[in-house]
Design a protein around this nucleic acid. Structure first.
Lengths: 245, 245
DNA sequence: TGGTATTTGTCCGTATGTATC
DNA sequence: GGATACATACGGACAAATACC
């Protein structure tokens, strides 16, 4: 969890904003690492770290012997940010939209074979199972099916579920959420999708399955988010490795 | 483009295989950086770099003051690897499956308003437009719509399109492909999807739009890949930043 | 409770290799 | 060949979080 007050992060933020406001324009090369090093009064490693993070988000690409090319292009906005774990609540704030969450179901369960297969939780442990309808500007966009391990996230209530569960986990329980694995698929709609989402003639939804690990390496959350296809986009940034041999 | 012969890459590969063959098991901590440093006879930075790359792929997560936790779990196989640009041809080899590509359409075009909107190419330039049906083990899984800038990728032919266009670009044209931006969406099927893909009663496809940049920062390829929903999965690995207050 | 050792995180400086121009 | 620029690698210092006694 990189603090926002580190030196490399400040440089990262500064370069990022200068790319976004076109101080450095697309296609151009950034000033060389040596120049940036003296400009920011830091070591070359620190500049390189900031640049590496920009490259991970698709703002620049480094070219051996040439320089660092800006390839940023202002995109259509997505509901979710690049490669970061971001809650619906946080995303809505970032987009400046009004969000609302309804909780039609909040129950405690014991994991059986069927749930185990879907969630990867061990059979027999106690969990919370929550259904949440995510609305933005009066439109129901997502149905979340949340499964939380009760031993890791005790004290969850329906009231908390209406707000940000992540807030509760981080601030009240002091669990630092570190890593999430995600799988994106497309599935047939089910009755619940039909009931809550305005799907028009779509018979599919975009499904994002989240597996979240805490600091002990325990997977304590499985969430399946079922999205209205016409309001769903998932952005990604990839780097090509030189092919082997 | 990290060479596979670098020291940090060898360490990365070694740790990765030891995680996969359970020399280091899930939930365990790796040996400390100090131990790994002496084991691999290298500097601490080099070990840290290998670990950082493992973390990016969801194999481990670093915990300040504690150690580096293994969180690898063998997953259901996907047609595509994590966060890497990988061609269909390469993916099929990795999966050990027999792949075939049909090319029902191969034309040269000049970009008009309509194409410009879809591809982000400037109006007026010459391009190749190619349709490719991707089959694996007799099943048509993907329809690719490829748009290549002719000035960057000259000499493309239908024969080349039946194999790996990336191979041609890298080996013959010596263009090193560096960065790709991807957007995943879900769209209604069109006539072509219906014609070539066995969609059953799905009326949607999973769509991956690729924007590929060369070393000059020029976007020279736009590809829209339309996938059969039941054979599509997209894996992702995310890290949570500490939320800003 | 407190102090110490361990472990990861940040940052620095330097040297050398390699690709581009 | 020489100058420039990024890539790799080393070693050291200190900070911060954790674990242990």
């Amino acid at each position: 969890m990189p603090s926002i007050t580190t030196k490399y992060n400040k440089i990262y933020q500064d370069l990022k904003s200068k790319i976004e406001d076109k101080t450095y324009e697309a296609q151009e090369l950034l000033p060389s690492e040596a120049i940036l090093t003296s400009y920011y009064d830091c070591s070359r490693n620190t500049v390189r770290r900031a640049i590496a993070n920009l490259a991970l988000e698709g703002y620049v690409q480094s070219l051996h012997g040439k320089g660092v090319r800006v390839i940023y292009q202002p995109h259509a906005q997505s509901a979710y940010a690049f490669g970061n774990v971001e809650s619906f609540h946080e995303a809505s704030i970032r987009n400046g939209k009004i969000a609302k969450t309804e909780v039609p179901l909040f129950v405690e369960l014991v994991v059986d074979q069927h749930i185990a297969k879907r969630t990867s939780f061990p059979v027999g442990i106690e969990i919370y199972y929550i259904q949440r309808i995510r609305c933005m500007e009066q439109k129901a966009l997502i149905i979340d099916h949340n499964y939380f391990r009760k031993d890791v996230v005790p004290g969850l209530t329906k009231e908390i579920a209406k707000g940000s569960i992540y807030n509760f986990i981080e601030n009240k329980l002091h669990v630092h959420i570190v890593t999430t694995k995600r799988v994106m698929t497309v599935e047939h709609v089910n009755q619940l999708d039909r009931k809550y989402l305005e799907l028009g003639d779509y018979n599919c939804v975009a499904v994002v399955s989240n597996y979240t690990y805490n600091a002990d390496g325990i997977m304590f959350e499985y969430t399946q988010s079922r999205h209205r296809p016409d309001y769903f986009a998932f952005y990604d940034q990839a780097r090509r490795n030189s092919p082997e041999e």
